[in-house]
Amino acid sequence: TRVETATETAWISLVTALHLVLGLSAVLGLLLLRWQFPAHYRRLRHALW
């Protein structure tokens, strides 16, 4: 049971790290898009909202 718990903890930390990385890359990508294509971003936002 001790090994299982350790594996579970490792998986949880791995998944958390993955989610953090994905979230950060998504935010960075959005910022980059907004910085590179302001007109396109505004049009996209206008279409979405």
Score class of each variant (00 low, 15 high):
1 T>M: 13
37 F>Q: 00
14 L>Y: 10
10 A>R: 12
34 R>T: 06
42 R>V: 07
14 L>V: 10
34 R>N: 04
13 S>E: 06
48 L>T: 01
4 E>S: 06
22 L>K: 02
8 E>A: 11
24 L>M: 13
35 W>Q: 14
22 L>R: 00
12 I>W: 05
33 L>G: 02
12 I>N: 05
30 L>V: 14
37 F>L: 09
9 T>Y: 11
48 L>P: 00
17 A>Y: 04
15 V>A: 06
40 H>E: 05
24 L>F: 13
12 I>D: 02
45 R>F: 06
30 L>P: 04
42 R>I: 03
28 L>V: 09
32 L>R: 00
22 L>G: 10
21 V>G: 10
24 L>P: 05
32 L>N: 00
16 T>E: 04
43 R>W: 07
31 L>T: 12
21 V>I: 14
34 R>F: 06
27 V>A: 10
12 I>K: 12
2 R>S: 14
27 V>H: 04
40 H>A: 14
49 W>N: 15
21 V>E: 02
46 H>K: 08
11 W>L: 10
1 T>N: 02
17 A>R: 03
29 G>W: 03
4 E>A: 11
19 H>L: 15
40 H>D: 04
34 R>Y: 05
20 L>G: 11
47 A>H: 11
36 Q>G: 11
46 H>A: 05
42 R>Y: 11
41 Y>V: 14
34 R>V: 10
2 R>I: 09
13 S>V: 15
10 A>F: 09
3 V>Y: 03
26 A>R: 00
27 V>G: 09
39 A>D: 13
17 A>M: 07
18 L>E: 00
40 H>W: 07
39 A>K: 12
13 S>G: 13
21 V>K: 01
4 E>H: 08
16 T>R: 03
26 A>P: 03
18 L>R: 00
30 L>D: 04
6 A>H: 04
49 W>G: 02
37 F>D: 05
8 E>K: 01
13 S>D: 11
31 L>S: 07
9 T>W: 15
19 H>Q: 08
47 A>P: 03
12 I>T: 12
27 V>I: 15
6 A>F: 05
44 L>R: 02
13 S>C: 15
48 L>D: 02
13 S>K: 11
11 W>T: 05
8 E>W: 03
1 T>P: 02
35 W>M: 15
48 L>C: 14
29 G>K: 00
44 L>D: 04
1 T>W: 04
19 H>W: 15
1 T>A: 13
36 Q>C: 11
13 S>M: 14
22 L>C: 15
10 A>G: 11
32 L>P: 05
2 R>L: 13
1 T>V: 12
3 V>Q: 01
28 L>F: 11
41 Y>C: 14
18 L>K: 04
24 L>I: 13
8 E>M: 07
22 L>I: 10
48 L>R: 02
43 R>M: 08
20 L>Q: 04
1 T>G: 03
14 L>Q: 04
5 T>N: 00
19 H>C: 15
46 H>D: 06
41 Y>L: 13
21 V>L: 13
15 V>H: 01
15 V>N: 06
47 A>Y: 13
35 W>E: 02
9 T>D: 03
42 R>H: 12
28 L>P: 03
42 R>T: 09
29 G>N: 00
3 V>P: 01
2 R>H: 14
3 V>W: 00
35 W>N: 12
7 T>M: 11
25 S>R: 03
10 A>Y: 13
31 L>Q: 03
37 F>R: 04
29 G>C: 12
15 V>T: 07
13 S>R: 10
42 R>P: 01
17 A>K: 00
43 R>P: 05
2 R>G: 08
45 R>K: 15
15 V>C: 08
10 A>M: 11
2 R>T: 13
6 A>T: 15
4 E>Y: 06
35 W>V: 14
6 A>S: 14
22 L>W: 00
27 V>C: 10
8 E>N: 12
45 R>G: 03
40 H>M: 14
12 I>V: 10
29 G>D: 05
24 L>S: 07
37 F>K: 02
11 W>A: 02
9 T>R: 12
19 H>V: 15
9 T>L: 13
28 L>Y: 04
42 R>E: 06
15 V>G: 07
22 L>Y: 01
17 A>T: 08
43 R>V: 06
5 T>P: 00
44 L>S: 03
26 A>T: 09
38 P>Y: 08
28 L>S: 09
38 P>G: 08
17 A>F: 06
17 A>I: 09
6 A>C: 08
43 R>I: 07
8 E>P: 09
17 A>E: 02
29 G>L: 14
39 A>Q: 15
31 L>D: 02
28 L>N: 04
47 A>I: 08
18 L>V: 12
48 L>Q: 00
41 Y>H: 04
37 F>G: 00
16 T>Q: 04
14 L>A: 09
11 W>S: 06
9 T>H: 10
46 H>V: 05
27 V>K: 02
28 L>W: 09
14 L>D: 03
17 A>S: 06
31 L>Y: 12
3 V>G: 01
4 E>I: 07
5 T>I: 04
17 A>N: 01
18 L>P: 04
37 F>E: 02
12 I>Y: 09
26 A>I: 12
32 L>F: 11
29 G>R: 01
42 R>F: 09
10 A>Q: 07
40 H>G: 10
5 T>Y: 02
6 A>N: 11
25 S>P: 05
41 Y>N: 05
17 A>W: 08
7 T>A: 15
6 A>D: 07
27 V>N: 02
10 A>K: 14
43 R>A: 09
11 W>G: 06
34 R>K: 15
4 E>M: 13
48 L>I: 13
33 L>W: 07
2 R>D: 13
22 L>T: 14
48 L>N: 05
20 L>N: 02
18 L>C: 07
19 H>D: 01
21 V>F: 15
16 T>S: 08
45 R>C: 07
12 I>L: 11
26 A>C: 13
14 L>F: 11
48 L>A: 05
1 T>I: 11
30 L>H: 05
29 G>I: 13
29 G>H: 00
26 A>L: 14
43 R>H: 07
9 T>M: 11
43 R>N: 05
10 A>H: 11
42 R>Q: 13
17 A>V: 07
44 L>T: 03
31 L>K: 04
42 R>S: 11
47 A>Q: 06
2 R>C: 06
44 L>N: 02
14 L>W: 08
32 L>T: 05
29 G>S: 10
44 L>H: 04
28 L>R: 02
33 L>F: 10
36 Q>R: 15
35 W>R: 15
47 A>W: 12
16 T>C: 14
43 R>K: 09
17 A>L: 10
29 G>Y: 02
37 F>V: 05
38 P>C: 12
9 T>F: 09
11 W>R: 06
2 R>V: 08
44 L>F: 14
33 L>A: 07
27 V>L: 15
22 L>N: 00
18 L>D: 01
36 Q>D: 00
16 T>P: 03
48 L>S: 06
34 R>A: 07
24 L>C: 06
42 R>C: 07
29 G>T: 14
